[in-house]
């Protein structure tokens, strides 16, 4: 052995795993300003980028915690679940998709109905979950929203729906489409009964959800920068065969074109709803 060779590789005494601090999944890059954010900072800031105020998606439960007093509420119709009426299969059976989503999120479908208080005022609040098959609306979402409206009628309560959805759920076919009519008919009754309905549109709200309840609020309020529209941007680009301009179909664009009452920052949302309900109700 040559006299200048090392006798052992000293570095190997430290196992490779312990060599660096684990940061996997603790940092996140802001979609808008590309700043690297400590995930916990984002969590405490209700998923709003502290650097550029970009609004990330907020989960359905977190949303209720944001809006309802003391993060307390009674959930309604929690167990309603789809039974896959068409036995739909694409690259994966719909039944399996449902099961996976249910396991991942601990909820039966893409919406929560909560009865709680907002700044002391009792109300019904529906909160959609984008993580559940893109927040898509099938028979369960349709039924739950309709029941929520009927509950408002029965108890004379105002309604807030936070939308976050790609639209109708393809895997339930025409049944999904009919939910648009069902919910809108119930909203006509709510309107006749002169009970307030405040629609909150968050990123994204498109397709059948926009083309029914999301656009039918006494007030339509959106979070900043949310994608809101009927057809998705890709479909439009395919139709007109050109790129869409920056900011097309974003909250600010809809405000400019007269389809929203206001664009409200997440931190002000609760106060905004509360003040408007004070105007409408005694």
């Amino acid at each position: 052995m040559a006299w200048f060779k090392r006798e052992k590789k000293s570095l190997e005494s430290v196992p490779p795993d312990e060599r660096r601090v684990r940061t996997e999944g603790m940092w996140i890059k802001c979609e808008a300003c590309a700043a690297i954010l400590w995930k916990k900072d984002l969590d405490t800031n209700w998923q709003v980028c502290p650097k550029c105020e970009h609004h990330f998606k907020l989960g359905s439960v977190k949303r209720l915690e944001l809006l309802l007093d003391d993060a307390e509420w009674t959930e309604h119709d929690a167990a309603l679940a789809s039974n896959d009426p068409l036995a739909f299969v694409d690259t994966k059976p719909y039944k399996l998709r449902l099961k996976d989503a249910q396991k991942k999120l601990g909820m039966a479908d893409a919406i929560l109905t909560a009865e709680g208080h907002l700044n002391g005022r009792p109300l019904i609040c529906c909160s959609m979950e984008f993580g559940f098959i893109g927040g898509s609306m099938g028979a369960v979402v349709g039924e739950k929203v309709t029941r929520a409206i009927e509950l408002c009628l029965e108890k004379q309560l105002p309604l807030v729906i936070v939308s976050c959805s790609g639209g109708a759920r393809m895997m339930e076919g025409t049944i999904s489409l009919m939910q648009l009519a069902k919910i809108s008919a119930a909203l006509a009754r709510l309107d006749d009964a002169r009970l307030p309905f405040i629609s909150i549109l968050t990123d994204p709200t498109t397709g059948g959800v926009t083309a029914s309840y999301a656009m039918l609020g006494d007030l339509n309020i959106a979070e900043p920068g949310a994608l809101i529209g009927f057809a998705g941007p890709r479909v439009i680009e395919q139709t007109i065969r050109q790129k869409l301009p920056e900011g097309f179909q974003r909250s600010e664009f809809l405000l400019q074109h007269g389809f929203l009452d206001a664009v409200v920052h997440r931190r002000d949302l609760k106060r905004y709803i509360s003040t408007s309900l004070d105007f409408f109700l005694a």
Binding site: L180, S184, Y213, A214, L216, G229, F230, A231, I240, G258
Partner: peptide
């Protein structure tokens, strides 16, 4: 599904 239809509120018109 075109730009002008979106600008003038396709979703709102259907919903109403």
């Amino acid at each position: 599904p075109g730009m002008d239809a979106e600008e003038r509120g396709q979703a709102e018109a259907i919903a109403r």
